[in-house]
Write a protein that binds this DNA or RNA. Sequence first.
RNA 1: GGGGCCGUAGUCCAACGGCAGGAGACGCAUGACUUAGGAUCAUGACAGUGCGGGUUCGAAUCCCGCCGGCCCCA
Length: 828
Amino acid sequence: MSEQADMQTDEQHYDPQALQVKWQRRWEELNPFAAPATPSGAGGKRYMLDMFPYPSGDLHMGHAEVFAIGDVVARYFFQKGYDVLHPIGWDSFGLPAENAAIKRNAHPAEWTYANIETQANSFKRYGISFDWSTRLHTSDAGYYKWTQWLFLRFFERGLAYRKGGLVNWCPNDQTVLANEQVVGGRCERCGAEVIRRELTQWYFKITDYADRLLDDMAQLEGGWPDRVLTMQRNWIGRSEGADVDFVIEGRDEPVTVYTTRPDTLYGATFFVVAPDAPLAGEIVSEEQREAFESYRAEVAKLSDIDRLSTEKEKTGVFLGRYAINPVNGERMPVWAADYVLSDYGHGAIMAVPAHDQRDLDFARAFDLPVRVVVHTGLADPGETGVATAGDGALVNSGPLDGLGKTEAIRKIIEVLSERGTGKAAVNYRLRDWLLSRQRFWGCPIPITHCADCGEVPVPDEQLPVTLPDLRGEALAPKGVSPLASAEDWVNVECPKCGGAAKRDTDTMDTFVDSSWYYLRYVDPDYEDGPFDVEKIRQWGPIDQYVGGVEHAVLHLLYSRFFTKVLHDMGMVDFTEPFTRLLNQGQVINRGKAMSKSLGNGVDLGEQIDAFGVDAVRLTMVFAGPPEDDIDWADVSPAASQKFLARAFRVMAETGAASAPGADVATGDLNLRKTVHKVVDEVTKLMESHRFNVAVARMMELTSALRKAIDSGPGAADPAVREGAEALAVMLSLVAPYAAEEGWERLGHPASVARAGWPVAEEALLVEDSVTCVVQVAGKVRDRLEVSPDISEADLQALALASERVRGFLSGAPRKVIVRAPKLVNIVP
RNA sequence: GGGGCCGUAGUCCAACGGCAGGAGACGCAUGACUUAGGAUCAUGACAGUGCGGGUUCGAAUCCCGCCGGCCCCA
């Protein structure tokens, strides 16, 4: 800073860094955001929750955005006088810590807890309104003890179980993944292509809750973004159809297939089994076995995405066997083909080539018959190669002939039910949640495996099963859990029979940890259970949740599932945990996600050093609607800083010119109207989460105050003070440091964060006159200043009397639309 | 292939079916204050709302089709 500037430095100089140092210390003493032990019930409660961070180094731009936006909501709740719970914790189990530990020959906890400290300090500097007494870490034994406790309750209820089967395996992270963690055939974490492996793993029976997860979304309509609800609906993928039993020649048990189009049963001309389904290997004829085995080996290399691609040429092998169509007794060849997945329905389908494109592609590739059974009026699929999936009258279908789709489905289900060869059925895309992970830094699964007793739960009083002290090389991925190598830890007595037994060596998916953390925040040190049931009754459910859309079907689905199970256990009285959800966008740079390889990363610490916390936060909030991505190249933290300096000077100058307590009624009326109008608008904008527009209104107010001080009633006018005080309070949601200092300059004790939201006076929102637009044929031809409560008749007369309007009229108007007091449209 | 969201000044973003004298901001230009300005203050220019239809007294806004972008499911 130049000497000149130093000399200019006066009471009104805005120095963000100095304010940060000053107020961070003061806030530590004041602790303005401590939640009451229980909400009083009088003024209402608000549980405001940000998705808790993973401690991967210091906070970054993405965190800065979520928490800036979440904090606007939280601080608004505080200002409105609610009892607010705004907690913070860390999702502190997970792979990056483990990988860092391997590289540094250290323990994952060292890296994890060091990063948590760094982030905690950054949060404090960033001025987020957390109640720090709520702080929790999912990797604390005091926390994961209860994750284990919950697992055991799920186990008791049959909601946690072990089964063998094909699972998604990430060859890079050397662990299995849940379906939700496979995105486009790749590992959601690291992007490696996922392969299939046959393994015995632990699952949560989320499919038992599929219907409730679907139905309870009705509660979330309007509170959650539609697209997240749609994504969850798609993910659950409920479809209605029928299970149809097909006899396979030479097999005692019939094979059930699921179809959404049982009405087309007469059009089934062949039968397809997933090559990786056990059924295929079982029924393949001796002559075809060799061909089948080599085909199966090929298919094993493919991802589901490849298999389902409509682009890909159809492949398959005839299994040398025939299935019998239950309605017409036809023999249909049984094929194995990769376009049928082993986990869809029952791993086998009836193929109706005329009315399903993939079946048709397959039929054409292998010269199988195509039979039209729905008359859609479109050309024969056998000729065109285009399947007809639409509605129409059934043909070649015995008793179904002439019926439409809906009727035919009803009828065929009736027929099948009578014969005992089928029934109406519902199918889901959702699969059970695979929760085992072959990694170290997670919550151990509290199960002991005993040769005699089988899976034996660790008794509650022995919880937590703590992690052994492994570090460095011992954690290197080898395809089995690192825990397996900790022999002292693994070998235990069976809790049931006392014989030799082994601990389960897998750890839980970290999404288990985060599926219930919001419940523990009400008392993170609670020792009589995972959470204080009574406190959750009072604080829950979460009124506003803020976080990224990347969890649309991961964390959010799992948490909803947990909540429902806990509801069934009588531990929570609500069935949906998050009443309202706000998905903020990403912070990108020059059109692309920030990444090391692109070299377009922006460092949050540097931005804060350069512009100050308030300016960075303001930039995040002002950039656009909260759901939109922010391209850092399109926004200007420098401009934010400039505005804050302007706003600060207004507050400081006002504070220097007057003291609190003046009679506002004596203030400049025009300015007062502006102030109250802005307050009214900002209030509504906050309620509807249009924070960027709210900031624009604060800018207008600042400009109005500037003008009033410079060339209006002057800084000492009570209206200026009223406006400056309102500005300080509203600004505190976005720029807490500048607002706090401004509030102090205005002569008020800290903290501005709890000063109370300004209330717009109705009387001051009424305009003396409004501008009425007079249109002729929809084009503006004149403007009239009229009273806001002018009658339609008076307004019409006034408009028709206008000289300027009459110039555009040649005779009596055909029609006059009057929307008093703002518009008249004359149709000539 | 199905479903959804979105296209407004050079840029980001506003606008209950009713004035696009764009709310706000970036950038640009001009002026004032200045030794100077990257500070501050003031002023100004820049789009007719992706394209084509329709509904309506009136459409950025509602409906249909197309183009372009993003997301989900396949």
